[in-house]
Computed example of a mutant assay.
Amino acid sequence: MKAIAMTRAGLPSSDPQSLVEIDLPRPEPGPRDLLVQVRAVSVNPVDTKVRANSAQVPRVLGWDAAGVVEAVGREVSLFRPGDEVFYAGAIQRPGSNSEYQLVDERIVGPKPRTLDFADAAALPLTAITAWELLFDRLGVAEGGGEGQSLLIVGAAGGVGSMLTQLARRLTGLTVIGTASRPETADWIRGLGAHHVLDHSRPLAAELAAAGLPPVHLVASLTHTDGHYAQLVEALRPQGRLALIDDPKALDATPLKSKSLSLHWELMFTRSLYGTEDMVRQHALLARVAALVDQGVLRTTVGERFGRITADNLRRAHAFLESHRARGKVVLEGF
């Protein structure tokens, strides 16, 4: 089968050898695996980070896909051949940039019926991350949050685009997003944010200038180390700070006087450690698909980069590394 892989470690996306087409044997499903014929993928910052830092070669990247189940393992009970599915996969297994991929059924959802494969492929990783961050890490109850506020730093990106929708549609939170350009501010408002602040300016001052009090919750999705002091200032006592990025260092001491709590979210944790509640990601994706089909949530495609080829994937990696992306980058078809 055709696959796009990194075969040399540490190459920049501008190098034609950073991602190349290779031929691999079609894999056989394990007991809980689905063998999926991949129809579309999206590219996330994790793809560029793994390409730049992993020493494992050859390695097929890609942690977002939509496709059709080709075959199933002997213990599979949630899907059957012919089902249309979407998923983010597991960081320790070969990725979705191949014609066929194995994925554990417990982290797969039924593809939204109202979306094509490319629009569906934009959703899994960011939907899982946003859902777990909001409901599992920050502890907001679905339908709850009335009288509380959530500040989302980097709300126009992939995770932010989903988090804004989930918080606005499924909770009573006041949703405050941040952006630094008119087009991304408009994007965030279109997704349902009540207020938009400029994160190129001090955030505590931006809140005050907008007539907004300190917030109860913060989801810091990018540049946490640069905004950290401002986030501590912007949070009210006993607030909660959640983050998904990779600050070089984070001193928890400034959180003490306000009794602030710190929460990490990594959507790969359940699959990486084979947790007992892994199947919650299946249920989560099924719920997201239903909400999309009901018109409550929408896809967050920002850019379409054509077919799944080595050239187009290199372009997508370069785009994510050099642009402040709005929504997601998708590719479809081998």
Results as ranks from 00 to 15, higher is better:
54 S>G: 07
290 A>I: 02
121 A>N: 08
37 Q>M: 12
15 D>P: 10
121 A>M: 04
196 V>S: 06
242 A>R: 10
224 T>Y: 08
32 R>S: 11
184 T>D: 12
1 M>N: 14
313 L>V: 11
115 L>P: 02
141 A>F: 08
215 V>G: 04
32 R>P: 03
234 A>K: 10
42 S>V: 00
250 L>M: 03
295 G>E: 03
103 V>W: 00
251 D>L: 09
36 V>K: 00
203 L>W: 11
40 A>I: 06
176 I>K: 06
34 L>C: 06
183 E>M: 06
232 V>E: 04
37 Q>K: 14
334 F>G: 13
167 A>Y: 12
120 A>N: 03
312 N>Y: 08
219 A>T: 04
250 L>K: 06
34 L>V: 10
140 V>F: 05
161 S>W: 06
137 R>A: 14
165 Q>P: 13
49 K>C: 03
247 P>H: 04
208 A>S: 12
7 T>K: 00
249 A>E: 09
219 A>P: 04
46 V>C: 05
205 A>N: 14
194 H>P: 15
105 E>A: 07
284 L>Y: 05
283 A>E: 14
78 L>M: 11
158 G>M: 03
95 G>E: 05
94 P>H: 01
107 I>T: 13
19 L>H: 03
168 R>M: 02
268 F>P: 07
143 G>K: 07
6 M>V: 02
26 R>T: 15
131 W>T: 06
244 I>H: 05
18 S>N: 09
229 A>H: 11
281 Q>N: 15
149 S>G: 07
180 S>P: 15
283 A>D: 13
259 S>V: 01
165 Q>S: 03
189 R>V: 00
278 M>G: 03
303 E>I: 06
285 L>P: 12
245 D>Q: 09
142 E>P: 15
221 L>T: 04
150 L>E: 07
142 E>R: 15
58 P>E: 02
9 A>K: 07
15 D>V: 05
201 R>M: 09
188 I>E: 08
277 D>R: 13
249 A>M: 01
203 L>D: 12
152 I>F: 05
189 R>K: 14
194 H>C: 09
205 A>T: 13
131 W>P: 05
288 V>Q: 04
100 Y>I: 00
144 G>F: 08
265 E>D: 09
44 N>G: 11
223 H>M: 13
19 L>P: 00
322 S>A: 14
195 H>R: 12
62 G>I: 01
115 L>V: 06
4 I>Y: 04
261 S>N: 07
141 A>W: 10
176 I>C: 08
149 S>C: 02
225 D>L: 04
66 A>M: 00
304 R>V: 04
179 A>K: 15
138 L>C: 13
3 A>Q: 09
7 T>I: 08
173 L>K: 09
13 S>T: 12
298 R>L: 03
63 W>I: 01
23 D>P: 05
63 W>A: 05
313 L>W: 06
108 V>G: 07
4 I>P: 01
311 D>M: 04
84 E>Q: 14
15 D>K: 06
179 A>M: 09
149 S>N: 09
229 A>G: 13
223 H>W: 09
260 L>V: 13
43 V>K: 07
